[in-house]
């Protein structure tokens, strides 16, 4: 497996390590980490930074009874060894996403957007952000659309290209608000991505009103 070439923005890794990143975006970052030793190392460093910041906080005294209460609770808790997770078996999805979805791609329902391009019926949303899966047949094109907010794609199978670069398994493509782009799936196989947006997409072409129905979450 090759190491990813396109990573989430450094600020996003910081937000993830600091715990301020919200769940939907955290899902994409955690899934990328499964592919990327470089970003795992960076997150470990940023967590070490969190450890130093925690250690250096001016301590606030806790109630005298807190330790006793805690020990009583612990006595009532049956000490079980850390459960060893069952071997996951082969999955197309990286672990964090597999746990979030609970099914493999072939078991999911898909909604056709244009020929060759599908979105999963599975999705999660929180606040203004939402995530779902995007599946592109070999060589297919996602219609031009503009963004009312930011968008990120994590490639999990195959690859695609647009005017900004070529993206392979493990890569994250990030688009700021208002950046038009034209993704084309690689010709040699299907492309499967995790799509995270901060607002619904708005299609701009003549069939935009129709396509927007497919992109409604």
């Amino acid at each position: 497996m090759t190491v990813p070439a396109h990573h989430p923005a450094p600020e996003l890794l910081l937000d993830y390590a600091a715990g301020s990143l919200r769940a939907v975006q955290s899902l994409l970052v955690a899934a990328h980490l499964a592919y990327c030793p470089e970003c795992r190392a960076q997150v470990a460093e940023l967590e070490a930074c969190g450890g130093v910041l925690l250690a250096d906080l001016p301590p606030e005294p806790v109630s005298d009874s807190l330790f006793g209460t805690l020990m009583t609770r612990l006595d009532a808790t049956v000490a079980t060894p850390t459960p060893v997770p069952a071997p996951a078996g082969k999955s197309l999805f990286p672990g964090p996403l597999r746990r979030a979805i609970g099914a493999e791609p072939e078991a999911l329902e898909w909604v056709r957007v244009v020929p060759g391009v599908h979105l999963s019926a599975w999705g999660v949303s929180a606040g203004t952000a939402s995530a779902c899966l995007l599946r592109m047949a070999p060589g297919s094109r996602v219609p031009a659309h503009r963004h009312t907010d930011s968008e990120m794609l994590l490639v999990m199978k195959g690859g695609f290209s647009d005017e900004f670069g070529a993206y392979r398994v493990g890569d994250v493509a990030s688009y700021d608000t208002g950046t038009p782009h034209h993704a084309v799936a690689d010709a040699d196989g299907e492309c499967l991505c995790l799509l995270v947006q901060d607002q619904p997409l708005v299609f701009t072409g003549p069939l935009g009103w129709l396509l927007n129905r497919g992109f409604r979450f």
Binding site: M1, V3, G19, R22, A23, S26, L27, V29, A30, A31, L33, A34, Y35, P37, R40, A41, A44, E45, P85, P87, A88, K90, S91, L92, F93, P94, G95, P96, L97, R98, R99, A100, A126, V169
Partner: peptide, 25 residues
């Protein structure tokens, strides 16, 4: 936040069962 934080777990690495990635820092 009543959210479940998506976390990487130790057996999540190399999801395609491919060769081991370089050792972590």
């Amino acid at each position: 936040r009543q959210e479940r934080r998506p976390e990487l777990q130790p057996d999540d690495l190399a999801p395609d069962g491919g060769e081991e990635p370089p050792p972590d820092h």
